[in-house]
Computed example of a mutant assay.
Amino acid sequence: MRGFVFSTEKAFDEEGNLKQPKQLSINKVGHDLHGIDPVFKKFSSSEKLSGLLCSLGYRRPVIIQSTYIFKQPGIGGEVVPHQDNTFLYTDPPTCTGLWLALEDATVINGCLWAIPGSHKDGLVRRFVRDENGVHFDKPSPTYDQKDFVSIEVKAGSLVVIHGNLIHQSFENSSSKSRHAYSLHVVDTDGCKWIEDNWIQRKVAPEPIYVR
């Protein structure tokens, strides 16, 4: 998977036509921006990010996924509660999400929400690829929305997300977009990329650095 453009259903009318200009209809672009675009590559492999990962104990980190999220006004869709390890699994689990706010993220325009301490309770389910296609290995659990807290941040803030942290975001109901750049990193030192992960690459990604 190199680069794909995604739009939400709300961007189209009943006849399948866009309701607004193209530039305001894109929901997100992914999953390999750091691999195909020099600007994203430069940032994603910067000394600041590699230093952060080093401080978290990574020894041979690779970026397994990168996505630009527009969260457009009025059509920016909901992201249901999930854990990143569900989709990007290594043995042992090593996924960390790096979520960079490119614009202010507020409750009104669809900021992140998370359940504090949920990363300590283990992985709930996985999204796998097998002979039946791609699917979850277990049903979706039910969460109490009262357990979530909002993560409102200013533009330029970086949110570091543990792979087992349960988090979500709601629809953008405001007149302002909520742009963000999202990276997901796993370690390849003593860790195995599981063969039934839904994302598989023909060529293994290069590490950001090696300790």
Rank of each mutant, 00 (worst) to 15 (best):
A155K: 14
V185A: 09
V107L: 12
V107M: 06
C95H: 07
K120A: 00
Y181G: 03
H135T: 03
S169L: 03
F170T: 08
V128D: 01
R126G: 00
Y143V: 13
K154Y: 02
V160T: 13
P93K: 09
N132V: 00
P116Y: 06
E103A: 12
W99Y: 14
H179A: 13
E131C: 01
V134K: 13
D91G: 03
E171V: 04
N85S: 15
P93W: 04
S157W: 04
Y143M: 11
D91S: 15
N85F: 03
F127P: 00
D104C: 13
N172I: 01
Q145L: 14
L88V: 06
R126K: 14
S157V: 06
F87E: 10
I166N: 01
S177I: 03
V185S: 08
Y89Q: 09
R129G: 00
K120R: 12
L165V: 11
V124D: 05
C191R: 12
A114W: 02
Y143C: 11
I115K: 00
R126C: 00
A180V: 11
V107W: 01
V186H: 05
F170Y: 06
T96V: 15
S118I: 04
D130L: 03
L165M: 12
L100C: 08
E131T: 04
D147L: 15
S177T: 11
N132D: 10
V149K: 15
T94L: 11
K154I: 02
C111Y: 03
C95G: 08
N85A: 14
P141I: 06
A180W: 04
S174R: 06
E103L: 11
H135A: 04
D91H: 13
C95T: 15
E152W: 10
I151S: 03
G110F: 11
E152T: 13
A101F: 14
V186E: 08
E171K: 05
G163K: 01
E171W: 00
L98E: 08
L112V: 04
R178M: 09
V185F: 12
R126N: 02
T106Q: 03
L183A: 06
G156R: 08
L102T: 09
L88H: 14
